[in-house]
Design a protein around this nucleic acid. Sequence first.
DNA 1: TCTGGGGTCCTAGGACCC
DNA 2: TCTGGGGTCCTAGGACCC
Length: 421
Amino acid sequence: MFALVDCNNFYASCERVFRPNLNGKPVVVLSNNDGCVISRSQEAKAIGIPMGIPAYQVEDLFKKHEVHIFSANFPLYGDMSNRVMDILGSFTPDMEIYSIDEAFLKLDGFEHMNVQEYATSMRRKVHQWTDIPVTIGIAPTKALTKVAGHVAKRFPKKTDNIYIIRTEEQRIKVLKWIKIEEVWGIGRRYAKKLKAKGIHTGYDFTLMSSAWVKKHMSVTGLRLQQDLQGIPTLDLEQVQVKKNIATTRTFEKNYTDYEDVKERVTTFAVVCAEKLRKQHSCCSALSIFISTNRERKDLPQYRRGITIQLPFPTNSNIEVARFAVLALKKIFKPGYQYKRTGVIVHELTPDDSWQQSLFENRDEKHIPLMQTIDRLNAAYGQQKIRLGSQDQDRVWKMKQERLSPGYTTKISDVITVNCRK
DNA sequence: TCTGGGGTCCTAGGACCC
DNA sequence: TCTGGGGTCCTAGGACCC
């Protein structure tokens, strides 16, 4: 059996941990630049705030229902996620951290145990130690745990947030209940295609000819179909180091100057290099892209990306930034209003072993230099030491009007508790 | 006025090899 | 009239996830 543990309304729940007065009240969390709604408490869902909607389009709803709004506080969510995962990891080492708020567990060798009780104790412990509510789905395959999780979410009272698919009858029953577009692995495109063929539920999908599925949905679709049929096909994936690392942002305004865009690309490249060093990797290739605001149909549009090979693997701020700017030069076109750029590094290899190049090699003096920069930035604040080509005054000019404190990640923001006798 | 950010995997087709 | 057969590697694009 597998279990899927899923934190409920995760970002909104994290905000409520430190603002318990907001329990029972509508809470939403906005994306960077306070752009879109990316997390909603149950109450916020109930008053009809859709996922992903631009905030300005639901301002009336916010006002009318006194919705509590937060700017995304990713350091807080990341830290809360680590705490939840640590607790789950203490239950079983067979765990795959699937996303910031979800984990799959493998329950091999648990046959003698009461799985229901086990799940209940897990749920209780996470709640007691972190105040984050979770939902648990349990089933013979990974894809079916997702379906079980849906059932538990839809009927929280009846299921007490835990649902187990044990029998073939239950498997068929829940698959007949779940709409095809709600099935994990079926996105908008596939749902449309399947509905056109008269497939409306998860169960319908399991009955389709595997040849058709393979042809139109590739082996990914085929694996999913088998998993839903109850044949274990997807296994826990041991999450290793990442294969790509991206730093991309939408700007708070449009940029037309090459110099401005270059500064942003440099800074994003530096952030990528820092992320690389954190996971002890170097990159051997890099992409950048630039884009105008695609929502502004009235403005001339230009979007382009480029990938370049680096002459040697590196994770130095200086080198990654240099190559990123080189790439930018190849695609930048003056006369457009740019709204978004990003840097993505690829072909990651461990930083303690690398192939020497015949022609050009990394500057080894950068290694101690980067270590020093990382140490200083860790001690005195992110981005205190920057490259000369980065904006020296700029902090992170993101619109974050309702940012919560870094309760668990910033010593000055740690909560004060007043104890009375 | 205002629309996020970070990932993964798979396939088809082109270019090339012997 | 009729022009082989078996590979690899790379990239762009499409699909999905949270």
